[in-house]
């Protein structure tokens, strides 16, 4: 742990101003140490008191929006979710997420990740488009069916897993942990019928076969999404499909309202429908 009794703390930040710098450079800042401060708090202090030109992305400050992913002392993390006191070093070293081009200072260009995400069709694919646009009821789903994908749906697209993946570090064609985990999130959803369409992408070089379980994506994920697990389960589905042992998934039907039965008098009427 860093020295909690120190009154000041040293930040080393990787800077890059595209109109001025030919390559990134390091800059040091010393700021007052405040109990309970996060790495993001320190960046704000630097911006407010020493260098207003320092750039990064952040929004919610509570690990929800996924904007402030950075390389903090060698590990991809959310700056808002990382206490200065939990870093095992005297100096806080902050750099932009690797494996993405640097737009400026701590701002990475995440567009390749979002392009790969979009290519894997991260939405429910069904034949009944009209039902999806104008729903007449809910799609049936049991708690057990929900559990098959719920973990993967917590992803906030911060890019930490992509920055930590050693395969993505050498292979820009590989989709990477986030898009693949999200593809599995929909493949495992009982309401979805898009496995065969996603398979066209997943079976190729952008698919999960370049993952060899270094596991770093799951280790750095700030939300416990476990992309490595999603990718291995996806591989199993693809293998089962290849040898024709995969059970075909019929998208869940719309639940019909119970036709019989009487309402208990102590249960109030539901609120008016909003959709």
């Amino acid at each position: 742990m860093s020295d909690a009794t120190a009154k000041e703390i040293l930040y080393r930040i990787r800077r890059f101003e595209p109109t001025r710098d030919r390559a990134p450079r390091w800059q040091a800042f010393t700021i007052p140490r405040v109990p309970g401060m996060t790495v993001l708090d320190g960046l704000w202090t630097i911006k407010q008191t020493q260098d207003a030109s320092l750039a990064w992305r952040s929004s919610c400050r509570m690990g929800i929006c996924g904007s402030c992913g950075m390389l903090i002392n060698g590990r991809a993390r959310l700056a808002c979710n990382t206490q200065v006191s939990e870093i095992d070093a005297a100096v806080i070293v902050v750099a932009p997420l690797p494996n993405f081009d640097i737009i400026r200072d701590l701002v990475p260009d995440l567009s390749p990740m979002f392009d790969a995400h979009a290519a894997l069709m991260p939405y429910l694919i069904r034949d009944d488009a009209r039902e999806q646009e104008r729903p007449t009821g809910e799609f049936s789903q049991s708690p057990q069916e929900l559990e098959r994908y719920l973990q993967f749906s917590y992803c906030i697209k911060c890019g930490c897993c992509m920055a930590a993946c050693p395969t993505y570090a050498t292979d820009p064609v590989y989709s990477g942990p986030m898009p693949l985990a999200q593809a599995q999130r929909y493949n495992a959803d009982g309401r979805d019928g898009g496995f065969l369409r996603r398979r066209a992408v997943l079976g190729g070089e952008r698919g999960p076969w370049r993952c060899h379980f270094a596991g770093e994506c799951s280790r750095v994920c700030p939300k416990g999404v476990d992309p490595a697990k999603a990718i291995q389960l996806m591989k199993r589905d693809l293998v089962w499909d290849y040898i024709r042992l995969r059970k075909e998934q019929c998208p869940a039907a719309v639940m019909s309202k119970p036709k019989a039965g009487t309402r208990r008098p102590d249960i109030p009427e539901p609120p008016p429908r909003t959709v």
Partner: peptide
Amino acid sequence: GFPNRLGVRGWVGGGRW
């Protein structure tokens, strides 16, 4: 942007893995 892909360093670099 400025290229920042780790390349083979991504296999071995870090020390915090």
